[in-house]
Amino acid sequence: MSQDETHTIDIIGKPSRHKIQEKIVTYFMLLCSSVAILTTIGILASLTFETFAFFQKVSFLDFLFGLEWSPQTALRSDQVGSSGSFGAVPLITGTLLISAIAMFFATPLGLLSAIYLAEYASKNVRAVVKPLLELLAGIPTVVYGFFAALIIAPFLRGGGENVGLVISSESALAAGLTMGVMIIPLISSLSDDVINAVPQSLRDASYGLGATQTETIKEVILPAAIPGIAGSLLLATSRAIGETMIVVMAAGLAANLTANPFEAVTTVTVQIVTLLTGDQEFESAKTLSAFALGFFLFIITLCLNIVALKIVDHYKEQYD
């Protein structure tokens, strides 16, 4: 910097000091955000590592295609116990059955409430109903589990007896229905946002052509909102697949391979819980299988979430 010239406008300062300040702030923030990222990486790494350890003991194909799940292995060498079979198929079908029941129940209810809230409800009704619906999402899942095990399941069982159906006291139906109630607010809230994001100009165009409100919703708003609604349904599905507490309490532990909603089934998450609660020998295939199941679950929900978010994002771009 030459000092021999005199300037009337002074722009000379200490850039180095500002640079250091900026750097400190930047690195501090990077540190903060890396805590979460590193934790995720750590979880993934341990999950992967233990999963590999499990597949040292049990063949991958047996796990993925085996039809029998009975993870009891002998704890002591002199113990007479089952050798254990780790076929995940009954768990996966159980998970899918319960999730399907939940979605089957929650999709129409959630979607119709979203349409009602977004298009029909007056401001006052909306101000009351929307928070009430979202309150459902705030109920701890263990309370839902309670509700399922103590009220829904006995009710279904009694109702079934009256019409000559045998419904076991722990059934896929009871768990699925309760889970359905739990994910209604998820579907309705996300779909409501999506429907509201359909531009008013499209509604005006439709009304301006003489369409009724029903025609406008059916022909213009829903088609425009379908991708976003599909995204919200996928997110809800991934939530249902990952849900644990309700199924632990209401669906049972029996790894039945069945499509009958009146029977007890078990899910991937329930088995992880039962495998890891209590004292466990860490090196046994039984314990390690929990990690394999967790890894498997992680992959499924990750894929669902990625697809769902892609769909939702893509839809958002359309109207920006």
Partner: peptide, 13 residues
């Protein structure tokens, strides 16, 4: 009595 709006608003069809 038809209407044409300020911003073109074709349906996403």
């Amino acid at each position: 009595v038809g209407m044409v709006f300020q911003k073109p608003n074709p349906f996403p069809k």
